[in-house]
Design a protein around this nucleic acid. Structure first.
Lengths: 289, 289
DNA sequence: AGCTCTTATGAATCATTGA
DNA sequence: GTCAATGATTCATAAGAGC
């Protein structure tokens, strides 16, 4: 049994990734700083400059990604003077120019999105999860994300009755999730390209709430245990934590010192790595601190 | 009480609309023939030519739309050789060049999407509902589409679809507990920009199943009773039927003779129009046939 | 009225075959 | 080769039959 690595590196991914060899990673999954968001931490990339800022970094992602690998980009354009900005559309087109295949666009439906009310729009309850690949054929483990299906629920839900459901939830606090797990093997269905994940309202210091379920889904789908996962805008390190939990090696990179410390604290210690020398890529795992 | 009109016109909307005066309509809501789809009826517009085909028609939409009006475009790009085609992105950018404001992108989550299994993608369960306006300030009746919160299980959960509930719980791991608390004290809540409608599998002759709920939602949201609604690719006339049911005047246009007949049969007869002369726009309502 | 079971059918996508 | 047509795959609904 090999040991798992979870390296959290400090710096701009554009520079840090230069130290990595070609085709190391099986998956790049990340939620970059959105344009004009997180201005106090990332300096706020202007929407007009977003593509030119992103492209060289995406070039590095492409280089360090295996040919059978996937690049999942979680992003959503902001509203500027009442209009959706087009920098994400421009980015998709530019990434294709760079040689990426725009394989799919998954929709992350945020069940509990930010509250608010405006005269000319409703709450924004979805984000894009853009799926890019290098080749037409890539690794995809569809079985790993299968979901309980169909007839089961109808009988089950109906047999419970409304009050039972309410009581069950309020007492246990965690709905039917566990039950479903028990019935998992009964019949499973493949999901669609619309994902339903709740945002985590945890009061973390990291400003972008990236729910664990999101990287988890894509890591399961696009990698095998032992594979390498990269999050070049790691933030508080959610991707690396999840990767580790799922038995994948991971590298997280972030510019913000505060996030680095946070992320290293989050990543679970790997007992075996104690007896190993530091990563040859100059990465320092939390353990080596 | 004024009479309602529901005119179904035959022809290419590019030509037919020339007969209409400026700023007649309060809402244009339509689902145009997608690129390479409906080849046997619409001739199948090639993706590469889609923008240049669409743009002059959109120019007419803009002319006949009131300044406070909205243009809702339901569309989704196809997969071509394993990749999402970019013609919809190009179209958004081109429409902005034409002077439209890209105000919002609603997601229509199709709960019952087409089945199928492929090695590198899941079933496509969503389409875009692009919302364009002429001005930053436009008519929007948010209260008209509020969602009842009283009996949450019936209304709210059904609007999501049963499988979604299962998936929420199994993916997120937490049930409805939090939401129940939020809903308890409210009767109505505003929706988000993610819409959950099932496609109608009715055995209609029209190949594109445009569920009534979709135009209904946008008609309620962006028009008042007595307003004028246009569907330039009317198909079997769903938009006009819904508009009439909601007390809005409507004009539907389609190239296909068969759809015209179908649509005129669907539109409910307007008793008052019997005593009126035909529409001055050369439109023949079903009644005047 | 309800409940269960069966059946039909979609703005789909891909690999293969045939012209 | 390149393009067009066909078959296989698959799941959420509605509708209908039977009790």
């Amino acid at each position: 049994m090999k040991s798992l690595q979870a390296d959290i590196l400090h710096g701009d991914c554009l520079n840090v990734l230069r130290r990595f060899p070609d085709e190391k990673f099986d998956l790049v999954v990340t939620s970059p700083p959105y344009a004009d968001r997180r201005t106090n931490t990332y300096g706020g990339i202007k929407p007009e400059r977003y593509v030119e800022w992103f492209l060289p970094r995406a070039g590095e992602f492409k280089r360090v990604l295996k040919k059978t690998g996937s690049f999942v980009l979680n992003i959503k354009e902001k509203v500027e003077s009442g209009e959706r900005h087009t920098y994400v559309l421009d980015l998709i087109l530019a990434l294709r120019e760079q040689g990426w295949l725009w394989t799919e666009e998954y929709v992350w439906h945020k069940r509990n999105c930010h509250p608010g009310k405006w005269p000319n729009r409703f709450r924004d309850a979805w984000e894009r999860c853009l799926h890019f690949t290098r080749e037409h054929h890539f690794k995809m483990n569809q079985e790993a994300v299968m979901v309980p299906m169909g007839d089961w629920k109808e009988k089950r839900l109906r047999s419970l009755g409304k009050n039972d459901i309410i009581r069950f939830n309020s007492q246990v606090g965690s709905g039917f999730g566990k039950n479903i797990a028990n019935w998992k093997d009964r019949d499973l269905a493949f999901p669609s390209n619309v994902l339903h994940f709740a945002t985590e309202c945890g009061n973390k210091k990291h400003s972008a709430a990236f729910p664990k379920a999101l990287p988890e889904w894509f890591i399961k789908l696009f990698t095998d245990p032992g594979d390498w996962v990269l999050d070049p805008f790691a933030g508080s390190g959610t991707t690396c934590v999840v990767a580790q939990e799922l038995g994948r090696n991971s590298v997280g990179i972030d510019k913000i010192e505060e996030y680095i410390e946070l992320a290293r604290r989050e990543v679970i210690e790997n007992p075996i790595s104690m007896f190993e020398k530091p990563s040859k890529y100059n990465g320092r795992s939390k353990k080596t601190l």
